[in-house]
């Protein structure tokens, strides 16, 4: 009787040791690693690219900024740049070049749209976009939306980077 009790006590100690080992493995083995640099760069990426893009001057369109060209595109004043493109197409070709060299170089997918009827709740265009570059993300994404005031209402520019 005494021997059996001692063996049960031994078994209980083994079980306790196994539980402690499992807790240690779960605690240290599956701890999520942090990545400070990636958090820093990805959180700023969409905002920085869109902000810089909108300030960029167009050499073939009287050095107007992309914001001014988008305003012209929405208002339809019929501005034609020296390379023969209208403001909408000029913004589209500039966005294609810049996004390909920045986000595209990192092999990430993206979508850039500018539209006058923007549904801010569903984050999508209710009408045909004025400018559309890239494809919408299927999974996780980082996005930035910029409102631009025009004489015919506010237009919204959205940059979505798939992560």
């Amino acid at each position: 009787m005494k021997k059996a009790q001692t063996e049960i006590l031994g078994l209980a100690i083994v079980v306790v040791l196994v539980i402690i080992a499992t807790i240690l493995v779960v605690k240290f083995g599956f701890s999520k690693s942090t990545n400070t640099r990636n958090d820093f760069t990805s959180s700023q990426e969409a905002s920085n690219i869109l902000n810089t893009f909108l300030k960029t001057s167009a050499p073939d369109c009287s050095q107007l900024t992309m914001t001014e060209l988008l305003q012209d595109c929405a208002q339809g004043t019929g501005l034609v740049c020296s390379n023969g493109e209208d403001s909408c197409n000029f913004v589209k070709s500039a966005a294609t070049t810049i996004l390909l060299e920045t986000i595209g170089a990192e092999k990430k997918n993206y979508e850039f749209i500018a539209c006058s009827n923007f549904n801010i709740r569903e984050i999508k265009c209710d009408s045909t976009p004025l400018v559309n570059v890239g494809q919408p993300c299927q999974g996780q994404k980082k996005l930035k939306i910029f409102p631009i005031p025009t004489n015919s209402g506010t237009i919204y520019v959205k940059l979505e980077i798939c992560t």
Binding site: R37, T41, Q44, N48, I49, T52, T102
Partner: peptide
């Protein structure tokens, strides 16, 4: 080695 690319005007 860490490479950080930031768009600037």
């Amino acid at each position: 080695q860490f490479k950080t690319r930031v768009p600037v005007t």
